[in-house]
Structure formats: structure tokens, C-alpha cells
């Protein structure tokens, strides 16, 4: 378990530094809420319309918020020169990946945990169901698995944060499709059986891309 404990050290370090200031967390939460409000204006007010557009709004919001979260995985490190320090540590590259990934995962889950109830409140929708929670967790996991890898990549490019969405959004398209579809079903209180295929796609995506990103990460981060 030495590997996991080393990875968790990194997660803990990131969590601590965030907990001290809470800047990024609060900005991202406020941002997510603002996006929801703006979408509400953009799409009109009738209740039936809301049921139609709610899954889409939810996941566009989480995607935007996710991009912000993933950016902070490596970019602040690079800017403050901590990245070299991190690499010199007696810790394997893979552990860095897992540590950063878990940090981003935790961060996003907190943002989602705050945003979802507010979403329920604003949209009058049965958002707090187990189904939706499962969908959200699965989708976030995949998002963060790929995002952490590309964040490390983007940090070493000329355009940094700007290039991250272009590189990584096409790859997570199937995840977003599945999340929206599954959310739609969950919000309509459908049975687990109907969600099954979408959950399957997300689960498969998560497993495959966790493994691939894990294997490839060392190449991205070495000098």
C-alpha cells in the first residue's frame, strides 16, 4: 500500500492548500451556479421545457466547472515552479497521477454536491436520487481520469489553459452523451434497467481511460 499512501500524500497536500484559502472552490461553485442561472434565462420558464433541457444544462455546467477544476491540477504548480520539486521527490510518476486525479475528483465531487441540491431548488426537479448520484460519480471519475492527464500535457504547452478544452473535450464526448442521457432517465424516475446501458458505457470508459492514462502519464510529465 506504499504506492497508494504516496499518492494520497499528494492529494492531501492539494486538499490542504485548497482548504486554507477556499478560493478556487468558492469561485467554481459560484461559477457553476451562475451558469445554471444564465441557462435558465436562455431556455425559458415553462416546467415541461425545464424537464427537457435540465440534463443538458446540468452537464454543460459540470463540464465547464470541471474544466476549471482540472486546470488547477498542474497549472499553479508549474507557475510557481513547484512542478520540478514534485518530480524530484522519491515518488513514482504514476503515484503523482493518482494523487492529482484523486484531488481533482474530490474537488469536483464537492462542487457537484453543492450544486446539485441548488439545482433541485431552482428547477423543481427530483435531482437528489441515488440514480443521479451514481451517474454523476461515474461521469466525474472518467472526466477527471482523462482531464488530469491532459492537464499535465497542457501545462507544458505554449497556450496552457486555453488548449485544454480543445484537446480533451472530444475524447470525453461519449461520457457527456451518456451522462446527459442517463440524467434524463434518472430525472424521469425511470428504472435502473433503462439506465443500464449508459452506466455501462460510462463504467467502461472510466476503467479503460484510467488504465490508459495511468500508463501514459509518465511520458507526458518527464522533461
Amino acid at each position: 500500500m506504499r504506492f497508494l499512501s504516496k499518492a494520497l500524500v499528494i492529494t492531501w497536500k492539494d486538499a490542504l492548500s485548497e482548504m486554507r484559502t477556499k478560493e478556487v472552490l468558492s469561485s467554481v461553485v459560484v461559477f457553476a451556479l451562475l451558469v445554471i442561472v444564465i441557462f435558465n434565462f436562455a431556455f425559458g420558464a415553462s416546467q415541461e421545457k425545464m424537464l427537457l433541457v435540465a440534463p443538458g444544462i446540468l452537464w454543460v455546467t459540470f463540464t465547464f466547472a470541471g474544466m476549471l477544476s482540472i486546470n488547477r491540477a498542474f497549472i499553479p504548480e508549474k507557475e510557481q515552479g513547484c512542478l520540478e520539486g514534485l518530480m524530484v521527490c522519491p515518488i513514482s510518476r504514476e503515484a503523482i497521477y493518482i494523487g492529482k486525479m484523486l484531488g481533482s475528483l474530490l474537488f469536483m465531487l464537492i462542487v457537484e454536491a453543492i450544486a446539485l441540491p441548488i439545482f433541485t431548488f431552482l428547477f423543481n426537479l427530483p435531482v437528489l436520487s441515488l440514480q443521479l448520484v451514481v451517474v454523476t460519480v461515474l461521469a466525474t471519475l472518467g472526466f477527471v481520469a482523462v482531464g488530469t492527464l491532459f492537464s499535465a500535457l497542457a501545462v507544458n504547452t505554449k497556450a496552457r489553459e486555453m488548449v485544454l478544452p480543445i484537446l480533451f473535450l472530444p475524447i470525453v464526448v461519449p461520457l457527456i452523451i451518456s451522462a446527459v442521457k442517463a440524467s434524463e432517465l434518472a430525472l424521469s424516475r425511470e428504472s435502473w434497467a433503462t439506465l443500464a446501458s449508459w452506466l455501462g458505457i460510462m463504467g467502461a470508459f472510466d476503467v479503460i481511460f484510467l488504465v490508459v492514462s495511468f500508463l501514459v502519464f509518465a511520458f507526458v510529465i518527464e522533461e
Binding site: 482523462v146 492527464l149 472530444p170 475524447i171 464526448v173 461519449p174 452523451i177 451518456s178 442521457k181 446501458s197 449508459w198 458505457i201 467502461a204 470508459f205 479503460i208 481511460f209 490508459v212 492514462s213 501514459v216
Partner: peptide, 15 residues
């Protein structure tokens, strides 16, 4: 990553 994704994309868009 892109290539590994292609079958998943195909599956998701079809479904």
C-alpha cells in the same frame, strides 16, 4: 487515447 476512444464514441452515438 483518441483511438481507444473511437469504438466508445461509435457506441455512444449509436445508442
Amino acid at each position: 487515447l483518441g483511438f481507444v476512444d473511437v469504438p466508445i464514441i461509435g457506441l455512444a452515438t449509436t445508442l
